[in-house]
Amino acid sequence: MNSKVPLLSIRDLQVSFNTREGLVRAVDGISFDVEHGESIGIVGESGSGKSVMVNAILRLNFATEVIVKGEILFDGVDLLKLSEAEMTRIRGREIAMIFQDPLSALNPFYTVGHQIGEAYLVHHPDASKSEVNRIVLNALDKVGIPEAAKRIKSYPHEFSGGMRQRIVIAIALVNDPKLLIADEPTTALDVTVQAQILDLIQSLREQSDSAVILITHDLGVVAETAQRVMVMYAGRAAESSTVTSLFEAPSHPYTQGLMRSVHSLENSSRGSLKSILGVPPSLINLPGGCAFRPRCSHQLGDQSKCNTDKPELRLVGKSNVACHLPDEIIKSNSVSDV
C-alpha cells in the first residue's frame, strides 16, 4: 500500500436511522483521517454520535436498520462498498474493537479460552489445536491475566469486570489488527481499574504499532492516551486538533465549556464546577444552522450565519474549528477564557 494513503480516511460520513418520530441523523457529515500507528481520541457527550460512527466503520449495524452515506476508506478501499463476506475478513483481523461494557461483551456460554481462540480461528481456519492454544495462552499473558493456563477454561462470569475487559482486549489484539477501535473502554470500570486498562491499551499499542481510535466522554482519558482529538457535538465535528493545542487553547465554545466542566485542582480553587447550560439537542429533524447555537455563550443575533448555515471545520490558530464566530473572537476566547 502507498504509505501516503492514510490507514483510515472517513469522508463526509452520514449515519441516520428511520424511526417513527422521524429521521435521526446520528452522524451528520464527519470527515477525518487516521494515520498508521496514530492514536486519535474522539470526545463528546452521550448521544453525540461517537459510538454510532465507529459502529458504522465496522458495519456492526446488525439488528437495526441504518442508512450510511459517504466513504470509509480503509487502506484505500471503501468499506461501505464491500460485500458482507469481504467485510467479515476485515472485522477482527484488520480492524478490531473493544467494547464499553465488559460485563456483557463476552458470551456467557463459552470459556474465555474458547472465545479468544475463536477470534483467531475465524481468520486462521487451518490453525492446529496446539497452535491456537499457544496463541490464546500468549494473549492472556499479554493482557496480564495471572495463571493463564488455569483460567483458560474459566467462564466470563468467573472474572471481575477489569479482568473481563482484559479478555476483551485479548480478543481484539489476537490477530494484530492495523486499527483498534476502543469504544469507551473504561466507562464501566472502577477508577483504579480504568487507569490500568488505559495503561494496558497504551503499552500494547506501542508494542504492536496498531493505530487506535479511542472513543470517550472523558477529556482526561484523551489527554493521557491520544495524539490528536476530535470533539463531536450533535453528530458533527466541533473541533479537531492535536491534544496539546486542544488543552492549551480550546477554541470552540463547546470545547471550552467541556474544559470548564472538568474537575481539576485549578478549577475547584475557583469555585464550583461550571456545567454547559441546556441539554444536547434531539437529533430528530435537527434545525438548520449551528446545532450548538441554543447553548452557546456567544449569541450573534437572529440574522447571523449561526441560524442558517452549519459551520464547517476551518483552521483557526492551531486548531480546526467549526464555528461562525470571527477568528479574532475564537482566538482571544481560547487564550483568556480558560
Binding site: L58, L60, F99, N107, P108, E118
Partner: peptide, 11 residues
C-alpha cells in the same frame, strides 16, 4: 453486546 462482539470478531 456479546453478539456485537462476535460480529466484530469476524464471525
Amino acid at each position: 453486546e456479546f453478539v456485537r462482539l462476535g460480529l466484530a470478531k469476524g464471525l
